[in-house]
Amino acid sequence: MSWLNRVRNSISFLPKRQVAENLWHKCKKCDSMVFLKEWEDNLFVCPRCDHHDRIRAHQRFAILFDEGKYDELAAPEAREDPLKFRDTKRYVDRLKAARTATEERDALINARGQVEGRTAVVGVQDFAFMGGSMGVAVGSAFLAGVRAAIEARAPYIIFTAAGGARMQEGILSLMQMPRTTVALAELREAGLPYIVVLTDPTTGGVTASYAMLGDVQLAEPGALIGFAGQRVIEQTIREKLPDGFQRAEYLRDHGMVDLVVPRGDLRATIGKLIAYLAPESEAEAA
């Protein structure tokens, strides 16, 4: 054995599991390397360029609700794979893979808690679950969230993030558009506000339905918001689209979004809106 091998073998290395896998986060926009804890403490926003990363539903709840406390609402039962759909994979296999990866039942999750001391029911679409796509389960969860808000005499707040309708459910996914619209009519008949927060990305049939029906439309900075993709639009109208087209700031400047709100200010902003728009619940009035 050479002296080099003897020296190398005498050095004790930490087991791989004891070494931090990643202490840094690389910003997807500016490519800056940010210390992971700094990025997380900044609510998953790059402190260099203010890029708002996509976050999971429970991270969103923890940021929005007072002291990070909330009660997750049970997901309603929905028929799976109603069309027995198969492309390169069976739809049921895609669902299993998404549930394993995200540990969630489907793409829309509801929770109830306090926002700036006021009760609210909040739904969050998780883009990590099949691109946040809208199927029967998402439509059922939306209805359940609206009806929970009516029961609690509280506003319903939705954070949208979706690539559109879920193609594996065909026409049934498109039927969620009028279904959710009718649910919002019930909410308005009850005199309760509906607040939408558009996050990156919100596109397709979700944009064409409940994402654009809010009493107040908020958006996170830089969020991609639209129906058809930019390339499709350019090919259709045969014109070059302006810089920033379909981004939150462009939509605000052209009247489709009321406010673009940084993630760190969302709780305070939504709390003020609830105070202005929502009647006090019986429990809060007491």
Score class of each variant (00 low, 15 high):
residue 82 P to I: 11
residue 83 L to G: 05
residue 83 L to K: 10
residue 84 K to Y: 08
residue 85 F to C: 07
residue 86 R to M: 08
residue 86 R to W: 05
residue 86 R to H: 13
residue 86 R to F: 09
residue 87 D to M: 12
residue 87 D to A: 15
residue 88 T to F: 09
residue 90 R to Y: 14
residue 91 Y to D: 03
residue 91 Y to R: 02
residue 92 V to L: 12
residue 92 V to M: 10
residue 93 D to W: 07
residue 93 D to Y: 06
residue 93 D to T: 13
residue 94 R to L: 14
residue 95 L to Y: 08
residue 95 L to F: 09
residue 95 L to D: 08
residue 96 K to P: 01
residue 97 A to K: 11
residue 97 A to Y: 06
residue 98 A to S: 14
residue 98 A to H: 06
residue 98 A to Y: 09
residue 99 R to T: 05
residue 100 T to K: 14
residue 100 T to Q: 13
residue 101 A to T: 03
residue 101 A to Q: 11
residue 102 T to Y: 02
residue 103 E to F: 07
residue 104 E to Y: 07
residue 106 D to K: 02
residue 110 N to M: 11
residue 112 R to K: 15
residue 113 G to C: 12
residue 113 G to K: 08
residue 113 G to S: 10
residue 113 G to E: 12
residue 114 Q to D: 13
residue 114 Q to C: 04
residue 115 V to C: 04
residue 115 V to L: 15
residue 116 E to Y: 02
residue 117 G to H: 08
residue 117 G to S: 08
residue 117 G to V: 11
residue 117 G to W: 09
residue 118 R to H: 13
residue 118 R to Y: 08
residue 119 T to D: 13
residue 119 T to I: 11
residue 120 A to E: 09
residue 121 V to C: 00
residue 123 G to W: 01
residue 123 G to H: 05
residue 124 V to M: 08
residue 124 V to W: 05
residue 124 V to I: 14
residue 125 Q to G: 01
residue 127 F to D: 01
residue 127 F to S: 00
residue 128 A to R: 11
residue 128 A to L: 05
residue 128 A to Y: 05
residue 130 M to V: 10
residue 130 M to S: 10
residue 133 S to V: 14
residue 133 S to Q: 15
residue 133 S to K: 13
residue 133 S to P: 00
residue 135 G to K: 07
residue 135 G to P: 03
residue 136 V to T: 12
residue 136 V to M: 13
residue 136 V to A: 06
residue 137 A to Y: 03
residue 137 A to V: 07
residue 138 V to Y: 09
residue 138 V to L: 15
residue 138 V to R: 03
residue 138 V to T: 11
residue 139 G to R: 08
residue 140 S to P: 00
residue 140 S to K: 14
residue 142 F to C: 05
residue 143 L to W: 06
residue 143 L to I: 06
residue 144 A to K: 13
residue 145 G to V: 10
residue 145 G to D: 09
residue 145 G to A: 09
residue 147 R to T: 07
residue 147 R to N: 13
residue 147 R to L: 04
residue 148 A to C: 01
residue 148 A to L: 01
residue 150 I to V: 00
residue 150 I to C: 00
residue 150 I to W: 02
residue 150 I to F: 01
residue 151 E to L: 00
residue 151 E to C: 00
residue 151 E to P: 00
residue 152 A to H: 02
residue 153 R to E: 11
residue 154 A to N: 05
residue 155 P to Y: 09
residue 156 Y to M: 03
residue 157 I to W: 01
residue 157 I to K: 01
residue 157 I to E: 04
residue 159 F to P: 04
residue 159 F to C: 05
residue 161 A to R: 13
residue 162 A to Q: 05
residue 162 A to C: 12
residue 163 G to L: 13
residue 163 G to D: 15
residue 163 G to I: 04
residue 163 G to N: 14
residue 164 G to W: 06
residue 167 M to Y: 12
residue 168 Q to K: 04
residue 169 E to V: 10
residue 169 E to W: 04
residue 169 E to Y: 04
